[in-house]
């Protein structure tokens, strides 16, 4: 564990608490993509399957994995059941097949061994890198977003961005690298570039998140 990864994980935790806060305080899931949230459940369940297969990394690792699976399922419940009436499916129209299909193909092509769990692990890494697409698509379509929603997306983007110095640090100190995680992580962070530009130049200056018309 190094400081980059620790702060990356903390940003990831923070993103979930911000999301819960947004839903519960505004009593609404307006502006959120249910599809993105479903994709995160798929990502966590397929990657953290090793919890149930006897792989033990650390107490920290296990607690975080359980938290991410549990909280992402709870968010689906909030969006699907408790605040269902505030969700607008006509805005959330990104076709997830375009994300799941290619991720599955990439998982089958690039993995560390051709076994069920390794393919699923690899699939989850690729799917995570693009899971934010439906959410960014809603921002693009509506051209604006609530400030708290942009804090959520920013925290999520910062999480994977901090994994990049973590990998560089690990390469120097441990001498090895995980090419699948690194390539997907770079793509994932890159997808946030436009969003971050508007976030840093508008939201953090106290202005509303609005895309140029």
């Amino acid at each position: 564990m190094n400081i980059f990864r620790l702060f990356g994980d903390l940003a990831h935790l923070a993103s979930i608490f911000i999301l819960l806060q947004k839903i519960q305080v505004s009593r609404s899931c307006r502006g959120l993509s249910f599809k993105t949230q479903v994709l995160y459940v798929v990502v966590f369940v397929s990657r953290y399957l090793d919890l149930f297969l006897g792989t033990w990394v650390s107490f920290y690792n296990t607690v975080m994995k359980l938290f991410f699976i549990g909280s992402s399922c709870y968010i689906l419940y909030l969006m699907r059941v408790q605040f269902r009436s505030t969700y607008d499916p006509t805005l959330d129209t990104f076709r997830v097949e375009y994300l799941v299909g290619p991720s599955l193909v990439l998982g089958l092509l690039f993995n560390y061994s051709f076994t069920f769990t390794e393919i699923l692990w690899s699939f989850s890494i690729f799917l995570e890198s693009v899971a934010i697409f439906p959410q960014l698509f809603i921002l693009q379509r509506t051209g604006e977003a609530e400030t708290i929603t942009t804090h959520y997306i920013a925290a999520l983007g910062i999480y994977r961005a901090l994994y990049i110095p973590n990998w560089i640090y690990r390469y120097w100190t441990e001498g090895s690298a995980d090419p699948i995680a690194i390539v997907a992580g770079l793509v994932q962070t890159g997808l946030y570039a436009d969003f971050f530009y508007v976030y840093f130049t508008k939201v953090l200056q106290g202005k509303r998140f609005e895309l140029p018309a």
């Binding site: 792989t55 975080m64 991410f68 076994t115 390794e118 692990w121 699948i180």
Partner: peptide, 10 residues
């Protein structure tokens, strides 16, 4: 499993 650094990451 085990190959690849990412296995101990989240």
């Amino acid at each position: 499993t085990g190959k690849g650094r990412g296995k101990d990451e989240l």
